[in-house]
Amino acid sequence: MTEVTSTGTVTGTPMVKAEGVHKHFGSNQVLKGIDLEVAPREVFCVVGPSGSGKSTFLRCINHLENVDGGRLSVDGELVGYRQANGKLYELRDREVAHKRREIGMVFQRFNLFPHMTALENVMEAPLRVRKEAKSEVRDRAEKLLARVGMKDKSNAYPNQLSGGQQQRVAIARALAMQPKLMLFDEPTSALDPELVGEVLDVMRGLAQEGMTMIVVTHEMGFAREVGDTLVFMDGGVVVETGNPREVLLNPQHERTKAFLSKVL
């Protein structure tokens, strides 16, 4: 299957493909039919007002939330289900966990393990989940910490680190599983303004190395500079999609205009 994405690059299987994705919490309809496609190596930015469903959509991609309707697939495989004989079967916990190994996630509130040092945080999943050799894992973890500029804080506990430093360790922790896709859920929203830059720098470096990234963010500057595609979501639907530089400069839709006029 070959197709042309919105950015004009020709690709094979999309990394993420959503078709009419629905999600509700009780009677509250959060996602009302999301259609989009993320190509490999693409930096895909999602913006929108709070409550627009952008975080929920992100959490559906690694099955932290299950989808109620429509189809969502990662790298050609359905998320949370298996299809056989024309029927859908829910995946077992173990199978879901297995698929999550290939998707890294970075949270707004970092969620580092507070009882482990930075190095132990990064080493935990490769050691316990993949059961890799300790010396190898330590090697890789140290390299990752160096890459996010946290080498000299390897033995610090999370509460001895600033928010920006914690988030950089969290990125290293996600990368330690060598994911093919990285999800960022408002990674800079909980940070003091002067700490935002250091986290964005790390993300910029990742993008340049060709990591496929889906970034829910309020950092329009980052989206404009690094993003390949920008999606504006509101009220559980995708309102506008396009090249970030064009969308931000010249939004087509009224709701996009109204939102951007408030945040830019």
Binding site: A97, M105, V129
Partner: peptide, 27 residues
Amino acid sequence: VDEGQTEASAALGMSKGLTMRRIVLPQ
């Protein structure tokens, strides 16, 4: 123990048992 901890463990592909043993119970 904060819910974010089990979420982060799940996102790393940890099973429920492993999460309980390594992440939740120590905290």
